[in-house]
């Protein structure tokens, strides 16, 4: 019983770690590069404007997509490693 609890705990910790990393990336590309840090990126020009504008209107969306698929792939693997996947 306690061993089962340990497994569950380790599984949940692994999940939380993965969520944490993903959310840091999620926030950096949108709130970071797209809004708050935009002045810092103003030196890098992209198609008639700067990189911050690109992140705000396109880049963040592309990163969001990559993040969700990465998480789904990684998490489904973690499920199997901890033996908690659906049979």
């Amino acid at each position: 019983m306690s061993q089962q609890n340990d497994t569950k705990n380790a599984y949940w910790q692994a999940n939380l770690r993965l969520i944490g990393i993903s959310l840091v990336i999620w926030a950096s590309v949108s709130f970071g590069f797209g809004i708050i840090l935009r002045p810092l990126l103003s030196g890098i020009s992209v198609g008639g404007t700067d990189l911050g504008f690109w992140f705000a209107q396109q880049g963040s969306i592309l990163v969001f997509l990559a993040l969700i698929f990465f998480y789904a792939w990684r998490m489904n693997k973690v499920d199997r490693e901890h033996g908690v996947d659906e049979e």
Binding site: I19, S22, L23, W26, S30, G34, F53, A56, Q57, Q58, S60, I61, F64, L67, I68, Y71, A72, M75
Partner: peptide, 24 residues
């Protein structure tokens, strides 16, 4: 212009939260 980029980021970024924090 740029100021309304919020709609673009906001209405797509929510899916990251949905996928990671709620849906499963």
């Amino acid at each position: 212009g740029y100021d309304n980029s919020s709609f673009l980021m906001g209405w797509t970024g929510g899916y990251v939260l949905l996928a990671l924090l709620l849906a499963p």
